[in-house]
């Protein structure tokens, strides 16, 4: 039994839930290839059970958890969030998971912890994109948040979507969802969570720092060098209805603004 929470704040005209078929067939998950349909085609071979997660760094005790010990079925909630990709398309997706804050609380971070780092599985045998000799990403995929961002009640650790267990191509068995940031921050198939004193190196930032900042908050005023972020294409769209809508600051999740008060978001993009 899960509790349901709608998009916050909802736009009843625009924020229609994207069909499951689209959300599970149109993915950026470069571990499985760089075409949008590669993940759905190739993620079937990923073995998600058993799955363990290493927790280390500035915590009371470093240890490895089995997935089922990390997230109890009785804690699950459903949230419908907008997902804004850095490529200027967006979807609306119902996720099932727990607030990351509730897990971090149980892990007992030390007072010195300021950041949280995440890592995706690295296994080229299961993830053919990692075996590509022409790939540009330095595996494993890494992401990170400031501790207060990680503790924000909107930040979810996700195990399902559309009322079911996550399809592999959507980041099974455990992924992050940070709805006010570009999608690449919401790391998939997590095997390691580290509490850190310094900001972790993150994959896209290392690859092209001028294009992908550490914060990567959705911000219509700060363009990606290669395209505008002022608008987005809400999917699914069609040839005669490209469905181009205005992008909102923090993807419309204004309640996170206080996390960044006093920061120049043009500089800390």
């Amino acid at each position: 039994t899960t509790r349901r929470k709608t998009v916050v704040p909802a736009d009843p005209v625009r924020d229609v839930v994207t069909p499951f078929g689209d959300a599970s067939q149109y993915n950026n998950f470069y571990e499985f290839g760089s075409d949008k349909d590669d993940p759905a085609r190739l993620a079937g071979r990923l073995k998600t059970d058993p799955w363990s997660i290493r927790v280390d760094g500035a915590v009371h005790q470093s240890r490895t958890f089995a997935l089922e010990d990390l997230i109890g079925a009785d804690q699950l909630q459903e949230r419908i969030y907008r997902l804004r990709c850095v490529e200027a398309w967006s979807m609306v997706i119902p996720w099932i998971g727990i607030p990351l804050a509730s897990l971090l609380g149980r892990l007992q971070p030390l007072a010195s912890a300021r950041y949280v780092g995440f890592q995706t599985l690295q296994d080229p045998a299961q993830m053919p994109g990692q075996a590509s000799s022409t790939g540009l990403i330095d595996w494993p995929y890494r992401e990170g948040l400031r501790l207060d961002e990680a503790m924000h009640p909107l930040t979810l650790l996700v195990v399902g979507n559309y009322g079911r267990v996550l399809p592999n191509q959507n980041g099974a068995p455990l992924r992050l969802i940070v709805p006010w940031k570009y999608g690449f921050k919401s790391i998939k198939s997590i095997v390691r969570i580290s509490l850190l004193e310094q900001p972790p190196a993150t994959s896209w930032n290392r690859l092209a720092a001028d294009e992908y900042g550490f914060y990567a908050n959705v911000n219509p005023k700060v363009d990606h060098p290669r395209w505008s972020q002022a608008t987005e294409r809400r999917l699914p769209n069609s040839l005669f209805h490209p469905n181009i809508i205005d992008t909102r600051m923090f993807n419309g999740y204004d309640e996170v603004a206080s996390l960044y008060s006093g920061m120049d978001l043009r500089r800390w993009y």
């Binding site: 067939q25 294409r233 999917l235 699914p236 040839l239």
Partner: peptide
Amino acid sequence: MTGHAGPEPGR
């Protein structure tokens, strides 16, 4: 036009 090109046929 027939939905065989994914959710973003323009792209």
